[in-house]
Design a binder for these strands. Structure first.
Lengths: 206, 206
DNA sequence: CTCGCATACGAACGATCGTTCACCACCGAA
DNA sequence: TTCGGTGGTGAACGATCGTTCGTATGCGAG
């Protein structure tokens, strides 16, 4: 297992129970939602005491912010890496971006679910930072689509909105994906890539 | 304003504050989430007392269930009506279904948001009933897609999964739609219909 | 008129919430 | 050997939670 597909989102940080606490928070928020999970739940999952959580995180909402920041960083890193290895044409760049996105969902489904469902409970600077990171990710897709529309690869009449439609359909995969489902990792990625290209009205092999 | 586009999801029920309470619950759950909103919040929004809520609903989770049931009923009724008026060919049936869905989102955005985000907090029979209704809605779309694939209208190689992709992209619209946005109701519906047809790989006017 | 039910209310219950506190064990540096 | 910082604990704080209770008011049926 390499660095791009860890079993847990947060690897050991070299600081006591920090990684265990962050991963436990992710699981707890994923299972019961931010307001449905208590700090006691997080502590129990992390195998430590309630009060010890506050040696690592100043509050529950900052705990959510920290977890979401790490999840988003990992997704952004994967997208960057995938696009660095991709070619120059819009179709293959989009394909690689979609594949990287799907693989992130498969590897970190809970992180993706929490990311989409619980961001809205953040406030102030924490929320602004997350939204900015998410906008940056969206811009990556918009740029690819714009490039494809410019050179005639994509025929969609609504480039920016179509890019968003692709992204939302993609992140919704986290809501229904099951590891024991009919499709393998690769098949799922391939399927979603085809949906994305079709939605953008790229000519497809029929 | 006709019966298909009410200002609030629940019209007067002829029973005291019932409608006000259900609509207030919808707003409260939409604004703060199921666990983030308290029964006191609901009471305040409904303009009544906390204890009076329990003259209408036996528990908070049943309140959520009741609200979601009514939302889903309204959506299903609109879909049925739209398809009754539609033609026989798969493309126009899909178009009408998508348009009805989008119009429901525009009219009852909060209901759609709560429906997708908070169903998971239901348990037992309440959850099962909702899931069954949702599966029925999905089956409507799957049937249309299957018909279109059978007669050659749609070229997608993954009919059922594509139908689900269309549906999830569609319901995600509730997450970002803004009434003061760039697109009108009709334009938004038209756009989403085009996305759906493209995703299903229907031949489009280019 | 009066009885019964529907509708409504404030106050309170026990439970659980996020957070803080005082305290303890360990350990590398001075 | 002392000492400050790091990682850890159980107990407790005040606040808020969902829910219940006792009671009051108004109104249609008998």
């Amino acid at each position: 297992m390499n660095a791009r597909s860890p079993a847990t989102l947060v690897a050991d940080t070299g600081r006591g129970n920090e990684a265990a606490i962050l991963n436990a928070a992710l699981d707890a928020f994923g299972a019961q939602g931010f307001h449905g999970a208590s700090m006691r739940d997080v502590a129990k999952r992390a195998g430590t005491s309630l009060s010890n959580l506050y040696n690592y995180v100043p509050s529950k909402s900052r705990l959510l912010a920290e977890v979401l920041r790490r999840a988003n960083d990992e997704l952004a890193a994967r997208l960057r890496a995938a696009l660095a290895d991709a070619g120059d044409d819009a179709a293959s760049r989009l394909r690689e971006a979609v594949r990287a996105y799907v693989r992130f969902i498969v590897d970190h489904q809970v992180a993706m679910v929490v990311s989409t469902n619980e961001v809205r409970y953040l406030t102030g600077a924490d929320r602004a930072a997350l939204v900015a990171e998410r906008d940056a990710t969206q811009a990556v897709f918009e740029d690819i689509v714009a490039q494809g529309v410019a050179d005639g690869t994509f025929a969609t009449p609504y480039p920016d909105d179509a890019a968003r439609a692709v992204l939302t359909a993609l992140s919704a995969v986290a809501g229904w994906y099951r590891a024991d489902g009919r499709l393998s990792r690769g098949q799922l990625a391939e399927q979603q890539a085809r949906y994305a290209l079709a939605l953008l009205e790229a000519p497809l092999a029929r």
